[in-house]
Computed example of a mutant assay.
Amino acid sequence: MGSPEHPRVDLVRGDITEQGVDAVVNAANSSLLGGGGVDGAIHRRGGKEILAECRALRAGHYGGGLPVGQAVATTAGRLPARWVIHTVGPVYSSTEDRSALLASCYGESLRVAHELGAESVAFPAISTGVYRWPVDDAARVAAHAIRTARPRVPEIRMVLFDDAALAAFRAAFEAS
């Protein structure tokens, strides 16, 4: 296990809904009401408890939806985690640098995890699915954001969906 000063970062190929960690990060859409990809998988496997808490968030402080780069926690429902931290990644643009927003997803998720008292957190490759962020660049942004984040969480797990993503994230974390 790592420490808050020197978190351990593990990179694995797998299914984020199967991770036995304190907090799983959901690459959510701003509605917080489920969607495709990681978001849909987390809502399906986690069950109605997650959706109920997301609806309560929408009825309260997040009536307009969760802004890009922000993060908020709910129960993990039936997932083998305690919490789900929802964060909204930016849609990739070749004409506008949105990397600070992507980095914020990681930093804000770690801040929320720390506030919850989480000792371990699992991240997907945020924005690399339907939001079309190139995996190599997303990995670079993620590695830098995680390495420089304050506060920190002792154990961080990047859960990648295929061998190409795993290789890209390994290269980025080795270079950071």
Rank of each mutant, 00 (worst) to 15 (best):
M1N: 06
M1I: 02
G2L: 07
S3I: 07
E5Y: 10
H6P: 09
R8G: 13
D10W: 05
L11F: 09
R13H: 10
D15K: 08
D15I: 03
I16V: 15
I16S: 10
Q19E: 15
Q19P: 00
Q19A: 14
G20I: 09
G20M: 12
A23G: 06
V25W: 10
A27R: 01
A28Q: 02
A28D: 03
A28C: 04
N29A: 07
N29I: 06
S30I: 00
S30D: 11
S31D: 02
S31R: 04
G36Y: 05
V38P: 11
G40E: 02
A41V: 11
A41I: 10
A41D: 12
R44L: 15
R44N: 12
R45S: 15
R45F: 10
G47H: 03
E49M: 08
E49K: 13
I50F: 08
A52G: 08
A52T: 13
E53R: 04
L57I: 00
R58D: 03
A59D: 15
A59W: 14
G60Y: 06
G64L: 00
G64Y: 01
A71P: 00
A71T: 01
V72P: 01
A73W: 01
A76E: 04
A76L: 05
G77L: 09
R78T: 03
R78E: 13
P80S: 02
V84Y: 09
I85K: 08
I85M: 11
P90R: 11
V91C: 01
Y92V: 06
Y92C: 10
S93D: 03
S93I: 03
S94P: 06
T95D: 13
T95N: 08
R98W: 01
S99H: 10
S99V: 07
L101M: 12
L101W: 06
L101T: 00
L102S: 09
S104W: 07
C105Q: 02
C105L: 05
C105Y: 06
Y106F: 13
S109K: 03
L110T: 03
R111S: 03
A113F: 01
A113P: 02
H114D: 11
E115F: 01
E115Y: 03
E115R: 15
G117W: 01
A118N: 06
E119W: 01
E119L: 11
S120F: 08
V121S: 14
A122T: 05
P124I: 02
P124V: 00
P124A: 04
I126V: 15
S127V: 02
V130Y: 11
W133R: 02
W133F: 12
W133I: 05
P134K: 04
V135F: 04
D136S: 14
A138Q: 00
A139Q: 07
A139S: 15
R140Q: 12
R140M: 09
A142V: 12
A142E: 11
A143M: 02
H144M: 13
A145D: 08
A145Y: 01
I146L: 15
I146R: 13
R147A: 15
T148R: 14
T148M: 10
A149H: 05
P154T: 05
E155V: 13
E155C: 12
R157C: 15
R157F: 10
M158R: 03
L160N: 13
L160S: 04
L160V: 08
D162Q: 09
A164E: 15
L166I: 01
L166R: 05
A168K: 07
R170F: 07
F173A: 06
A175D: 12
A175T: 05
A175C: 04
A175K: 11
S176R: 13
